[in-house]
Design a protein around this nucleic acid. Sequence first.
DNA 1: GCGATCGGTTCATTATTTGAACCGATAGTT
DNA 2: AACTATCGGTTCAAATAATGAACCGATCGC
Lengths: 257, 257
Amino acid sequence: MSTVEKAISLLNFFTEEEPEWGLSEIARQAQFDKATTRRLLVALASCGLVEQHTVTRRYQLGAGLLRLARVRESHFPLLQVAVPIIRDVATSTNETVHLSEFGARGLVTVHVEESTKANRVSVAAGQLLPLHATASGIAFLACSPPELVRSCLRKSLTAFTRHTLVQPKRLQDAITAAAAQGYSRGEQGFEDGVFSVAAPILGLDGFALGSVAVAMPLSRSTKATTDRHIQAVRNASEKIATRLFGELPTPKHASFA
Amino acid sequence: MSTVEKAISLLNFFTEEEPEWGLSEIARQAQFDKATTRRLLVALASCGLVEQHTVTRRYQLGAGLLRLARVRESHFPLLQVAVPIIRDVATSTNETVHLSEFGARGLVTVHVEESTKANRVSVAAGQLLPLHATASGIAFLACSPPELVRSCLRKSLTAFTRHTLVQPKRLQDAITAAAAQGYSRGEQGFEDGVFSVAAPILGLDGFALGSVAVAMPLSRSTKATTDRHIQAVRNASEKIATRLFGELPTPKHASFA
DNA sequence: GCGATCGGTTCATTATTTGAACCGATAGTT
DNA sequence: AACTATCGGTTCAAATAATGAACCGATCGC
């Protein structure tokens, strides 16, 4: 792990649940020496990515991140473009709709519009979605470079429920089906009682950059609602891609040669 | 410059105007060797702070920044808290109101609500504000640690207009006056024809973390508008601090021993 | 076809990072 | 009041990582 990667990895300890850390505790968590950790934090602080409280001496994420995030969003306005579209889907379906984006850490939920119904599926922004166990993950894999799919298939596939696809052949079949039909279905693969459909959002290179999914309690799923939701996520993902890139990217499906 | 600082400094080349860079051009700009630059960018990319286009091979800021920015804003919701307050001030005064925050790079404009009048002062978010030449800067210095003020006074003070306070004694007097009255006035110090008043936003340690300012064309400034604007920025800065910290911090003025 | 520049790679050399041991300060316990 | 544990912080010989000149194939413009 390079020095830069070590430093950035410290940033990843800061979460909504744990937004502040003392030096010793973050060193312990990161399994870095205290001196090393402090030097890395001081370097991050000098660039504004981290701030140290003058009174408590504890560290938090810094204001410099806001400018960089603004530049990123300004140039690649995924949230700005996608949020209104997802909100529309949530309104028309009255189910939970969520957007996820693929990055260094994996497929991460970046925005959620929850259903207004009391019996609803709750998803947390920031949550990492296992590729093999979720509709979003399979939709994403359906339009991913073959080596990424192979890498995923080679890994030990965690069983979250007894419905999780843990056999590579089964997962591969689901990915192939999703590639052919342009959407995926997730039936209790990540959590019991949850049914989802998802569509991949494509980048200009034809590979998926994320997914949009509708999730609902399995108990109120019908063929009619499923068909409507499939249509909704496909429409939404196309709309998002078209607005981001000015054209609809041609999908590059994962193929298994 | 440490390796971490070198890496982060690359992030700062990405702006709204220049959101994408090729390897050779960013290396040239940063004055780093191409091999070094690539290694730093690859490290940043592996952490999600930067992304490389699969087709053009150019680099842009990465999605990982959005999560970190969200955590930062969630924990320290300066924008979330301040934007509605600033919007109210802009509505009631019908002049340009802007919020700035102090960080590693200096005092930076983070949000602007412009006047609806055709003859208005325009301020850009992201813009660095010279401490000695702006109302925001002087308000900030009025509640800053003495060593920061001394450091500022020791520097060569750039003249942006013929009204800029370039003599340390004059600047010191303006800071002292701002400390005493709780606001500062900026009369064409940064740009001809612009008049501003600003108040510091205090942190729990009593030192300023930023400022809020009203800026208007000098030509329509009267004693009555000035008094109203002073009241407005002071009210706004107190409101922001109270909402952030649950109490009104006691100012720690810069003193000159 | 040629020259310029691109992104990318290599490895001997150079520079930076590391972390064990130490420090004073603070908090909790007895 | 004395003691212990843990805090944030510092130092510098040793260890490790980073550096960048020279090179590569690919692409673009002339």
